[in-house]
């Protein structure tokens, strides 16, 4: 049953978002990666996951908010299909750190999709990144951090809406980055944010 509904879900997500994927300065690869993207819509995690090549989908796990994806049987079913790691935003505690949980979940095989802004910004402007990504990079320096710019998906399904409008969106995946030796938290986070801004500017220059 699951082997049938997973491609259907991916197909639906791709159809409604009309997403094209561009790999700029990088290629799809099965090595362990962390895709970090700007967050504009509830569909972000699903569409980004769906637009990866089929072989990568089964080993890529989006990190998403528990309060959204746990709300109701439909969302719970959908989230079970695309291997979401659900994070409880309200109960972040030292002994129950989401970063440790992510590292535990991915083991030595899976990749992650994270949204370091933490929550969606209705104006579309990118917020500052939360520090989780830095601790992830510090504990697992072998992971490749891939910047992803998601364009126009906030119009497909804006905050507070539950029905999608099938516009066209675009996902740009940029070259990988790593935590440099001795790089401080704030430096790393603003460098990561700048990578996404760079993809965004490239995008609007070419169009």
């Amino acid at each position: 049953m699951k082997s049938l509904s997973v491609p259907v879900l991916a197909g639906l997500a791709k159809f409604f978002s009309g997403a094209t994927v561009r790999w700029v300065g990088c290629e799809p690869d099965s090595c362990q990666r962390v895709y970090f993207a700007n967050h504009t819509s509830h569909l972000d995690a699903l569409v980004l996951w769906a637009s990866l090549p089929k072989q990568l989908r089964s080993i890529t796990r989006p990190v998403a908010a528990k309060d959204y994806w746990d709300g109701g049987p439909v969302r719970r079913y959908v989230s079970s299909l695309f291997n979401v790691i659900l994070i409880d935003r309200k109960q972040v505690k030292a002994h129950n750190s989401p970063i440790d949980m992510m590292i535990r979940e991915i083991g030595s095989r899976d990749s992650l999709i994270v949204f370091p802004e933490g929550s969606r910004n209705p104006t579309g402007e990118m917020r500052d990144f939360k520090s989780g990504m830095y601790y992830l990079a510090k504990k697992r320096p072998d992971l490749e951090f891939m910047p992803v710019y998601i364009d126009n998906l906030n119009r497909v399904m804006p905050k507070g809406e539950f029905l999608p409008v099938p516009l066209l969106s675009c996902i740009t995946i940029g070259p990988p980055m790593w935590l440099e030796t001795g790089e401080r938290k704030q430096q790393f986070l603003s460098r990561a944010r700048a990578e996404i801004v760079k993809l965004k500017e490239q995008d609007s220059n070419e169009a």
Binding site: P158, L163, P166, L167, L168
Partner: peptide
């Protein structure tokens, strides 16, 4: 038609308030 309308609305700046109207249009 569906695809052409997608392209047209994607190019057109719409606002949050148009979302549900667009749903019925599509």
């Amino acid at each position: 038609s569906f695809w052409a309308l997608r392209e047209f609305i994607t190019m057109t700046p719409t606002r949050r308030g148009d979302h549900r109207t667009l749903f019925w249009v599509f």
